[in-house]
């Protein structure tokens, strides 16, 4: 399997969020704004890639029966590294993301990739798979965060700079409240279904 295909596999074909519906909790919880989604995504890319590399390196050493606890310890170690780094360099973002930073440890995307891919493939492919899946997750986080922030505040803040001087329209507050997350995600998935179905029927005709 070539590396480029492994990379795009995570972003498009097996996008962990839009195709496999993994890791929903952090996805919905932290996406009240575009930048929150971005930083959460960066944290996930780091943990996923590092844990994939280590799991792949140790795949012949770890006994199959105790593999899950081993994977969890590896993942938890990298999550702790992320927590400390974020706390030191991005304290504001660490505060906003709150318990969802330590909760990366139970993010099913990461355990799923360790189990389904990294434990069966060589190190380089595992690393690329981690980056690809992480990117797919980040894109989903940013799309959802962007949509919710745009409709919920009628503005977009990038790097602390608002994109527009004044709110563009009367903001729909519900979008940045919990119900907005569920509804936006549902509608996004439905739109994606429409696109996939249209593509398929177009290809068939």
């Amino acid at each position: 399997m070539n590396l480029w295909r492994i990379l795009t596999n995570g972003v498009v074909k097996e996008n962990p969020v839009f195709r496999l519906l993994l890791g929903l909790c952090p996805l919905l919880a932290v996406t009240t704004a575009l930048m929150n989604g971005f930083w959460m995504g960066v944290a996930v890319i780091f943990v996923l890639t590092s844990s994939n590399i280590i799991v792949s390196m140790l795949r012949k050493v770890i006994a199959p029966r105790i593999r899950i606890p081993c994977f969890i310890v590896i993942i938890a170690t990298f999550v702790t590294i992320v927590q400390m780094t974020m706390n030191a360099y991005l304290p504001d973002m660490y505060e906003i993301l709150g318990i969802f930073v330590p909760l990366i440890v139970v993010n099913c995307v990461i355990l799923a990739r360790a189990e389904a891919f990294a434990s069966k493939n060589p190190v380089v492919s595992a690393a690329v798979d981690g980056i690809g899946m992480g990117l797919g997750f980040t894109i989903a986080l940013m799309v959802l965060g962007g949509v919710r922030e745009f409709f919920g505040t009628a503005n977009l803040v990038i790097n602390g700079q608002p994109l527009f001087d004044a709110p563009l329209f009367e903001p729909a507050l519900i979008m940045i409240m919990p119900p907005g997350a569920f509804i936006t995600m549902g509608v996004l998935l439905a739109l994606l279904n429409v696109m996939v179905n249209r593509g398929r029927s177009g290809a068939g005709a």
Binding site: P179, N193, V194
Partner: peptide, 23 residues
Amino acid sequence: VPEALKGIPVALVTTGLMAIAFL
């Protein structure tokens, strides 16, 4: 349910409506 909303999407929208009720 409309074709595109079948399964998970409509479930998520339903959850959203329940969340509004819980607000």
